[in-house]
Design a protein around this nucleic acid. Structure first.
Lengths: 344, 344
DNA sequence: CTGAAAGCGCTTACAG
DNA sequence: CTGAAAGCGCTTACAG
């Protein structure tokens, strides 16, 4: 491969001049710039990434720490990864992807070795053992997910509490008086998946305020168990007229379960989920849902991270905690309950 | 961050000695090695990746070129990515993930800049415009997918032709005489997705040999269109007793379609798909299927790539084209057709 | 068994 | 506006 020295020689200038002509970091005469560019073009010059990183202390790479947890619904993960990857590329950064089960070790390694200029953490737990490592690192970090302690990092998440309220209030307003909320498995909470109880607690509160009976249940995150769970929940609460799903696997399984019970939504049961529109389309889920906005969250996290990397944010500028407002996407799966007094 | 110079000073040795003690590339006295290691530990020393890459011409990074095509079923993609990422990590490599729509440009950039020691291409088309770039690159490449021209690269793919034969022969042996094969959309073929016609052509041939009528159809890769497609195919061929699916979206949609038609498998219809076991579990698909083995293919590709990177394969050693034999995973969705003479 | 030195390919103050 | 030189942090022949 051609080096900057080859380019300089071919253009008849000093290496420094060639560098400045190419990077634009110093004014260069039009004529020299043209010669250098021409030479670079002809030689097929591309700067050596390692050498540049060594000289500038910048790699133009962002680390993406994902974890493929067996109790998470894997397909949902992909959308966050895509959002992060696409945005990074648009801003001139490549993505170093780590799915190491030992996220802590992987994070320490890629930051200490200066492979990355910054880091995005997915799947953030309430007590995330990667956070102490991140705070010690020289590079900034952005999270998708809401940990117990947000100091020193920028945080982006769906407003799960508002989501819980919106779900309940939407059905309460339609006249429903007994609902079931199906959450992720309880061990997701134990592992630190705070979004489960954030949504649930808010839903419970909203139910109390609105005079609605809310049955909260944990469902499996995998098939076919979640199908059996749904049957059991519906059997246990035959008077419930609405179903709230904070569990992607449950949403994916519901069409089959409703078929098996000869029920339709919203005819027999009103349904509101919490997942992305992309997810709804992929699995043809006909239920209204709170948009979880994975692409948008990924984009927000990368944008803020790049601002910090590039020093557009003053050092120790207040770190942000930004919640995306839940938007209820209407797919026609909710209606007043059967026999509701207010229905004509 | 501590540098190798800091470590050397703390251990009271030369930088070169510190380097050798840490890398093990030259014999070092036990005592010195212990001192150096101790110093490195105390200082929290991690080599600077850029500097090491510059000095060794090795980055210990593998490029992974994925493309999220709108007509491919995204969740299926994730499993290849996981297989590649996990294997790379086990072998000491990090993954630079590119999902750039301009795969050609991305590939050129990451190879020319020496960011990566080698490259894995997913979603390889028959005439893949990334291949000329890859052949020109200084780094080796491994493909998952089977291009028209395999020179200069190592190739790994499912044996789709054998898969087509196995599907047909399995049902023929059970006594079926009329089958429908639902493939990916036709534009996947036009884009160069050779696996579609490789499986289909082999199936057609096997059908002829076995005296079976085979209706070949292209189905949409997205919901809800694929559901309507399936209804149409079944309407058009009411005497077909078996359904072959080379289309993940079709497999995911089939449970609902069968419910709607009040059909069961294998009671009314025998079904054989082509997808991974992981996919079957995620979506609780109860159909026997040809295992597409994404994790295994990813693993094979990375292993061979690393062998080339590390020079364990003689330069210009014959490149390999390796097909994974299709394995039919029995999930009980096939049986002799209703009213078959041979049934007691 | 160990050390001093050169070199990998860039960038960037320092001079003019 | 341009150039000569130093330096980023490693590794690795070359000497001893």
């Amino acid at each position: 491969m051609a080096t900057i020295g080859d380019v300089a020689r071919a253009a008849g200038v000093a290496r420094s001049t060639a560098s400045y002509a190419l990077t634009g970091k110093r004014a260069v005469s039009d004529e020299v710039r043209a010669r250098v560019r021409q030479a670079a073009m002809e030689l097929g010059y591309t700067p050596n990434a390692g050498a540049r990183a060594l000289a500038t202390s910048r790699s133009n790479v962002i680390g993406l720490l994902a974890q493929f947890l067996p109790d998470e619904f894997a397909p949902a993960m992909l959308q966050y990864i895509q959002g992060v990857t696409d945005t990074a590329r648009d801003l001139g950064y490549d993505i170093l992807l780590s799915s190491d089960a030992d996220g802590r070790g992987a994070l320490k390694r890629i930051t200490d070795s200066r492979m990355v200029d910054g880091v995005v953490l997915l799947n953030v737990a309430e007590q995330d053992d990667r956070l102490p490592v991140l705070r010690d690192a020289a590079q900034p970090g952005a999270l998708v997910g809401f940990p117990g302690d947000c100091t020193g990092v920028d945080v982006f998440d769906l407003d799960f509490e508002e989501a819980g309220r919106v779900m309940v209030e939407h059905l309460a307003r339609l006249g429903h008086r007994e609902l079931i909320l199906v959450s992720q498995p309880e061990h997701v909470i134990e592992r630190g998946g705070a979004y489960v109880w954030r949504l649930q607690n808010a839903a419970v509160e909203a139910a109390a305020v609105n005079g609605v009976v809310l049955h909260t249940r944990y469902g499996s995150s995998s098939q076919p168990q979640i199908g059996r769970d749904l049957h059991a929940f519906l059997d246990a609460h035959p008077n419930a007229t609405g179903l709230l799903l904070n569990n992607e696997a449950a949403a994916a399984a519901l069409p089959t379960v409703l078929h098996e019970r000869h029920l339709t939504a919203p005819g027999d049961l009103s349904v509101v989920g919490r997942y992305s529109d992309e997810f709804a389309r992929t699995f043809s889920l006909p239920y209204s849902s709170i948009e979880s906005a994975p692409d948008r969250l990924g984009r927000m996290a990368v944008r803020q991270l790049v601002r910090r990397i590039e020093g557009q944010v003053p050092e120790n500028d207040p770190y942000v905690v930004r919640f995306v407002a839940p938007e209820l996407v209407d797919r026609g799966s909710t209606a007043p309950p059967l026999g509701d007094a207010r229905e004509p």
